[in-house]
Design a protein around this nucleic acid. Structure first.
Lengths: 104, 104
DNA sequence: CCAAAGGTTCGATTTGCATCTTACCTCAGT
DNA sequence: ACTGAGGTAAGATGCAAATCGAACCTTTGG
C-alpha cells in the first residue's frame, strides 16, 4: 500500500468530512493534543492512550486521515501521525483554536 | 410545551453537539443562510426549501436548536428560527465564518 | 365555519458508525 | 530465527441517526 494512500490534497478537503470526524470526542482529543504540541510533532497512534481496542484505533485514525486533518507516515514499525496544521488553518481559520479551547 | 423548551443556555452548549449538528449538509445550509443574513433575521423552517419531508424538517431543526445554534420562537402559525450569533461567536470564534465560506 | 398551511408526534425502516474479536502482516530487538 | 509490539483487514454486533408516511393540532384566510 503506497504511503500517500488516503490523504486528500488540500483542495480535496471537505468541511463536511472534517466536521464529521471532529464530532467524535476521541478523535477530537487526538487533534486537541496534537494542536497543543509544537508544529510537526509526530506521534504514534497508540501514544494517545485512547481507551479502545487496536482495531478501533485504526478506524479513528483513518477517519482523521481521510478527512485531511492528520498525515500518517510509516516509520519502521510504527505509523506516525502529524497534524496538517497549515492546511487546516488555511482552509478553516480558527478551527484549531476552537478545539484547543474545549475542556475535555 | 413551553417556549424555552430544548434551548440550552450559553454555558450548556457543548462543542460535540454543535459539531455533530453541523456534520449534516442540510443543517449546515440552514446555518449558512442564516449567517449570511442580517443579525436577528427570523425565518420559518419551511422557507429554506430543504428537499425533505415535514417530519424530517422538524427533526433537523430540533438538532440545531438542542445544539444551541438557533433559537425557535412561536409566532402565530409558524415557528421562527433565528441564529444565536452572539452565543456561537463567543463560544466558538470563527466558526460561523468557516461555515459561510463553504461552497455548497 | 371550513379549509389549507405550518409543525409536531409516532412508528417503521434503513443506513451508517463505533466497537469488538480474531487473524494476519511487518519491523525491531534479542 | 523467534518473539513482541504496532497496525491493518475482515466480519459481527449493537446503537444512533436520517428518512418517510400517516395522523393530529393550531392558526390564518377566505
Amino acid at each position: 500500500m503506497p504511503d500517500e494512500e488516503g490523504h486528500p490534497s488540500r483542495d480535496e478537503i471537505e468541511l463536511g468530512r472534517v466536521l464529521a470526524a471532529l464530532a467524535d470526542p476521541l478523535r477530537r482529543s487526538v487533534i486537541r493534543e496534537l494542536a497543543a504540541e509544537p508544529d510537526g510533532t509526530a506521534r504514534t497512534c497508540s501514544s494517545f492512550g485512547l481507551p479502545v481496542s487496536k482495531a478501533t484505533l485504526t478506524h479513528h485514525f483513518r477517519a482523521l486521515r481521510e478527512a485531511g486533518l492528520i498525515r500518517q507516515v510509516d516509520r519502521g514499525n510504527s505509523r506516525m501521525a502529524t497534524l496538517r496544521r497549515d492546511d487546516v488553518e488555511t482552509l478553516f481559520p480558527g478551527l484549531l483554536a476552537i478545539l484547543r479551547a474545549e475542556q475535555p
